[in-house]
Design a protein around this nucleic acid. Sequence first.
DNA 1: GTCTATAGCCCGATAGAC
DNA 2: GTCTATCGGGCTATAGAC
Lengths: 234, 234
Amino acid sequence: MKVDSRKGRRRGSETSATRTALIDAAEQLICEEGYPAVSARRLASKAGLKPQLVHYYFRTMDDLFVAVVRRGGDRSLEHLVKALASSQPLRAVWNAGNDPRATTLSVEFLALANHRKAIRAEVKRYAEQMRMVQAAALTRQLQEHGADLGVTPYTAVVLTVAAANLLFMESALGISLGHEDTQAFIERSLQKIESNVPPSKSAETSPALPLGTANSRSPGPVKVARRRGPKAVR
Amino acid sequence: MKVDSRKGRRRGSETSATRTALIDAAEQLICEEGYPAVSARRLASKAGLKPQLVHYYFRTMDDLFVAVVRRGGDRSLEHLVKALASSQPLRAVWNAGNDPRATTLSVEFLALANHRKAIRAEVKRYAEQMRMVQAAALTRQLQEHGADLGVTPYTAVVLTVAAANLLFMESALGISLGHEDTQAFIERSLQKIESNVPPSKSAETSPALPLGTANSRSPGPVKVARRRGPKAVR
DNA sequence: GTCTATAGCCCGATAGAC
DNA sequence: GTCTATCGGGCTATAGAC
């Protein structure tokens, strides 16, 4: 396993304001016109810089994309952790799907990830971290109240995320067929859970979501780990 | 409203074998390398043709993409209708998410749709047709048996599609966290439904999925309509 | 840290001959 | 229906001066 540490050229520091401006411009360009619109020239012109600066800070355009994914992922993860702490976990998971910018970005990243290894690895890492954090928060809440949803915390999280994603992505395309019914159902389910498992009291035993029978394994406590393994792809 | 009927140049017929070969090559290229890899030159070289033929059959590259979406959409819709007729509707919906080629294509189309009006319209149209067909099949089956899922058919369809999409797309990225639990839950739910609402008998009254209370509105019978409205974007 | 200059390639789209 | 030729542009990435 090679570490890819060729240093052929000087490269700018990771803390540079110019570098940040380039990442900002890239994120905006991706949202507005899609990732293929991100070229050194367009990026520079949007940021009011010379095109060659892009390659001073990023060896390749893929390195730039990786930086954009990381900053977006870190930001979303941060928001998620805050939301999980300040409201009912499942509702936080449901609401997290409501950020238009994040949704647009994640569709772009998904398409990128399908064909670019380095980006796939980043996307995977963030998706897994988010899921772990969500499942851990839900597990903790259920344990505090001795409650049981009738499904594992992971199942509840996966289904909630899946529904939130589909509904939000579709509505961005102007699709709304079946959305009302589904939103109403999820709202009812969340309210039922919240009335059975209130934010900070104890003991309730009846399943809040009688979805079936399940062996509710717990994901256990989770720390949000800072990047591990091969430190970077750049 | 203009019909965009400029005919500045001769354009090839829609039934040409060469045209089909170009659509084939485009679809393959999109799957393998993503939609930005589709250029007239690369397309032609993959199909063993001259690049200028692309513009003989398609005025712009966007017209080509629209054609690819339409062919893929028609094909998926056709498969779906067959599957809905030959097995339990919800299971057919669940299984329909299992085609890797279709999944890859739809991520690409989604990214394209985010930034290109003509493609967004096509994607929307197919998504709505599929949902209508699915909900109609489920409604019909429930009526035949006088059964009730506890949620509207649209809700059941939306949730099933959402879960299938998320699980399949994630597994394409190598993500599997929480998948086992969720798949097992869905399998149990489908089996429960199928035992309460068998493929072709009558009368069962107990809700198969006790998911909550619902006013099960029916989508009514649905025909798969051939393209309506502005006939084409080309 | 930012600049000029440049190599070498790919792009969409059209015109008009055959 | 397919070809040759071509316009006018954009692209990544590097080298080396300031």
